[in-house]
Design a protein around this nucleic acid. Structure first.
Length: 192
DNA sequence: CGTTTTTGACCGGCGC
DNA sequence: GCGCCGGTCAAAAACG
């Protein structure tokens, strides 16, 4: 699929320029939640972050019928392993009707899976540049379908191509990234 | 005709 | 072990 010129999603506010480059936020990604920790509002997220996802773990433990302690342990192991194996990881939650947003890179889809406890499928993409290790996942928020969760993994070993980044016009928007501290990167840009 | 999407198969980890 | 679950592969189809 070829992106239309400019940003296909007018409410998508993140830029790859000096202001906001998610790929430069490696230090934050150390605190990211494991995969199924998504789908929270910011209040819950803050609570969760403060308690090491204890709250969410509790919910999931109840849902799957295992003990809270076991679920917490599982999550800890998951996070630790992924930190070692995968390095940096950053997730965004964006209000959008479109799921695929132009972030300045070209992506090739390589998988699609339905995930447990969510009616929405998860899509897997890899950076089209050969040898580049970066992957991303895109899925709708299980709790609020008007939001899209995009998770980036890894760091590009090349520059983003300028053609697709050329013109960005974005209005103000909510865009949370999942880190130890909930950040509202609401951003209004008047550039065209 | 080269590249990307689609989609079921496959696989490895983990809980039981 | 077995089955579930999330992630990836790969062949064929679709695309432009």
């Amino acid at each position: 699929m070829e992106y239309p010129a400019g940003n296909p999603n007018p409410t998508y506010s993140f830029h790859l320029d000096e202001n906001f480059d998610p790929f430069g936020l490696e230090q934050l990604s150390d605190y990211l939640l494991p995969g199924d920790g998504f789908g929270l509002d910011d209040t819950t997220m803050e609570t969760m972050a403060a308690s090491s996802w204890s709250e969410r773990a509790h919910q999931d433990a109840n849902a799957s019928g295992i003990s809270h302690a076991t679920e917490c342990k599982r999550r800890e192991n998951e996070l630790r392993k992924k930190k070692v194996q995968r390095g940096s990881r950053v997730a965004f939650r964006t209000k959008s009707e479109l799921e695929v947003m132009d972030d300045g890179y070209k992506w090739r889809k390589y998988g699609k899976k339905s995930v447990k406890n969510s009616p929405n499928p998860r899509n897997y993409y890899r950076c089209s540049v050969v040898g580049c290790p970066v992957k991303k996942r895109v899925e709708r928020d299980r709790d609020d379908f008007s939001y899209v969760i995009t998770t980036y993994e890894g760091v590009h070993n090349h520059n983003h191509n300028n053609e697709t980044t050329a013109s960005f016009s974005s209005s103000s928007n909510l865009c949370y990234y999942y880190a130890d501290r909930a950040s509202n990167c609401s951003n209004s840009s008047s550039s065209s």
